Amino acid sequence: MSQTSALKVPGAAPLPLQAEPLTLRPDVNDAHVRFIGLGKTYPGQAQPALQGIDLNIRRGEIFGIIGRSGAGKSSLLRTINRLEQPSHGRVLVDQVDIGGFDEDQLVNLRRSIGMIFQHFNLMSAKTVWQNVELPLKVAGMAKAERQRKVRALLQLVGLEEKHQVYPAQLSGGQKQRVGIARALVHDPRILLCDEATSALDPETTASILELLRDINRRLGLTIVLITHEMAVIRDICHQVVVLDRGQVVEQGEVWRVFGAARHAVTRTLLAPLQPRLPDALTGRLQASPASRDSAVVLKLTVLGEPDLTALFNTLGGSVRLLQGGVQAIGEHALGQLIVSVQHSPHATGPLLERARRWAEDVEVLGYVV
Rank of each mutant, 00 (worst) to 15 (best):
3 Q>R: 15
3 Q>N: 14
8 K>Q: 07
9 V>G: 01
22 L>V: 14
27 D>Q: 11
28 V>H: 01
29 N>H: 15
33 V>H: 00
37 G>T: 12
40 K>M: 06
40 K>P: 06
41 T>E: 13
51 Q>K: 08
69 S>Y: 05
78 R>Y: 13
89 G>I: 13
94 D>K: 03
95 Q>T: 08
95 Q>E: 08
100 G>K: 11
105 Q>G: 09
107 V>W: 06
110 R>A: 05
118 Q>C: 04
124 S>K: 10
135 P>N: 08
140 G>K: 10
149 K>G: 01
150 V>D: 00
151 R>G: 10
152 A>W: 05
156 L>I: 13
157 V>L: 07
160 E>N: 13
165 V>C: 02
168 A>E: 08
169 Q>G: 07
170 L>Y: 09
177 R>P: 10
181 A>F: 02
188 P>V: 15
189 R>N: 15
195 E>L: 10
195 E>G: 05
200 L>A: 06
201 D>P: 07
204 T>R: 10
209 L>W: 08
215 I>L: 10
217 R>I: 15
221 L>R: 11
228 H>M: 09
229 E>N: 13
232 V>N: 06
232 V>P: 06
238 H>P: 10
239 Q>K: 14
244 D>V: 09
273 L>V: 12
279 D>M: 09
281 L>S: 05
292 R>F: 06
294 S>N: 03
303 L>R: 10
308 L>A: 01
310 A>K: 08
311 L>I: 12
311 L>T: 08
318 S>V: 15
337 L>D: 00
348 T>H: 12
349 G>R: 14
354 R>M: 05
359 A>T: 04
359 A>H: 02
369 V>R: 15
